[in-house]
Amino acid sequence: MIQAAVISNGLEGLHRYYVSNNLVQYTVLEIDQYFNPNLDVFDLLIVPNGSDHIAMAKMKDTVSQFLNDGKALFCFDGWFTNWVPGNQWIMSNDKKTIDIRYRVHTDTYKLFDGIDINKLIYSHNISGWWACGYIEASKNAEVVLEDTWKRPIIVLDEKTTNGIMILTASGPLGDSGAIPSDEASSYTTLANLYQNMLHLIIKKKNNENHRITF
């Protein structure tokens, strides 16, 4: 089992999407005026859709240290502040959502195994419903998913820090699905993609625990 911290911005529904189970223990960290949590006990930091990127920027050094300790970060939101090491999210309205399609670019860890990419592209036959904008990825990062214009939409970065970051361009994901999909098959896809990411983090932690050093 891994320990995961979920940042809460006080929004309705967050607790429904991150329910502890036999793989992961979730601890919800509520943001307040003096927010600067100790992350030492956690393996994974989750910044869900609708997060507070002023609060995250204020704890930028804490996150950086957390990653340099070999821990993991999931960010499923649009970070307009510069708290994510080496990678920056950008919103842009110069592309039409009707033209948005996604393509798996490089998927070393097979995060898209069993995932129907069309469920991320379309909901009720409308495209561009899931993510917003794109990521300016670190040159060392792996672009897992890209859009019509080859802009990074999901990035996996284990080079910029000692840890691992999995970032979406504000595409919501959650343990049991995520806002905003109201179409059952898309909702399940969001959960399945998240589970693939979670299993990668669990596998890496187990490998770390079993490593013998001389």
Binding site: D32, H53, I54, F80
Partner: peptide
């Protein structure tokens, strides 16, 4: 404003930024 990106983009867009003051809820 509670640090949500859509609030930020709205209030800082050139079209509205001269009229809108972002107030961070925790301040």
């Amino acid at each position: 404003f509670n640090g949500v990106w859509s609030h930020y983009t709205f209030a800082t867009a050139p079209k509205y930024k001269e009229l809108i003051k972002l107030i961070y809820i925790h301040d």
